[in-house]
């Protein structure tokens, strides 16, 4: 299992900009928003949590199709499926690798990008906490979407259509918790809901994704 994690991480690094691409995309989204909305600091600060969350979500989506597609094409997935590691474990590890390469860097960078959006200082820690608890669900749900579409020629667009609606609960609770938190309200309820979705996704979605992979391999 650890060997698989190390391999996936190594592949992401060597493929040129494993960490970099998602982050760069995130930066561009945060840069574009003020151009569209105007430089008013008050408005930007108010929409910052939402924009950062949507940006993180889109950045995450970008690299999803690589979770299984390359392994499917070069035959590795067949070999992994017949290896001693259960397919559910393979899915979980690959989602973890995806999170380490995209979700975690996004979480770490979010406070800095928040500064671009005139986020107030309590907002930094709230963005960090909500993204830290929320992005693992994004990777796991994404792995499920990737497993569904792995056999398809142009699965990328379809996968976005399938995955984005599944992101809605995490997005709502995540952005809501950040907004409430930085306004000084009690943000426990949305935060717990989001953490619950993350925990539930990690616990159950590997089984659904493995079932989808089995169907796509046969």
């Amino acid at each position: 299992m650890i060997a698989l994690l190390i391999r996936d991480m190594r592949l992401a690094m060597r493929a040129g900009g494993g960490f970099g691409l998602g982050l760069a995309f995130f930066l561009i989204v945060t840069t574009l928003v003020p151009f569209g909305v105007g430089p008013d600091a008050e408005i930007l600060a108010r929409i910052a949590p939402g924009i950062l969350w949507v940006g993180a979500l889109l950045a995450c989506l970008l690299s999803l199709d690589r979770i299984f597609q390359l392994d499917f094409e070069d035959g590795s997935l067949d070999l992994l499926a017949t290896s001693p590691i259960p397919l559910e474990g393979i899915v979980a590890i690959k989602a973890l690798a995806h999170w380490l390469v995209t979700g975690l860097p996004l979480t770490l960078a979010a406070p800095f990008f928040g500064a671009l959006m005139h986020l107030e200082s309590p907002g930094f820690s709230w963005m960090f906490v909500t993204l830290l608890l929320g992005t693992p669900a994004l990777s796991m749900i994404g792995a499920f979407g990737a497993a569904l579409t792995v056999g398809l020629k142009r699965g990328g667009l379809l996968m976005s259509l399938l995955v984005l609606p599944l992101y809605i609960p995490s997005l709502i609770f995540g952005a809501e918790a950040a907004t409430r938190g930085m306004a000084g309200f009690n943000a426990n309820a949305p935060l717990l809901m989001m953490a619950g979705i993350t925990a539930g996704s990690i616990a159950l979605l590997p089984f659904a994704a493995a079932a989808a992979l089995r169907v796509n391999l046969r």
Partner: peptide, 20 residues
Amino acid sequence: VLCVVGSVFALLSRYAVNFW
């Protein structure tokens, strides 16, 4: 499989949206 998983998330969305 999508329908089953989607149903769970649709229900979650319903609660989330109410909350929101």
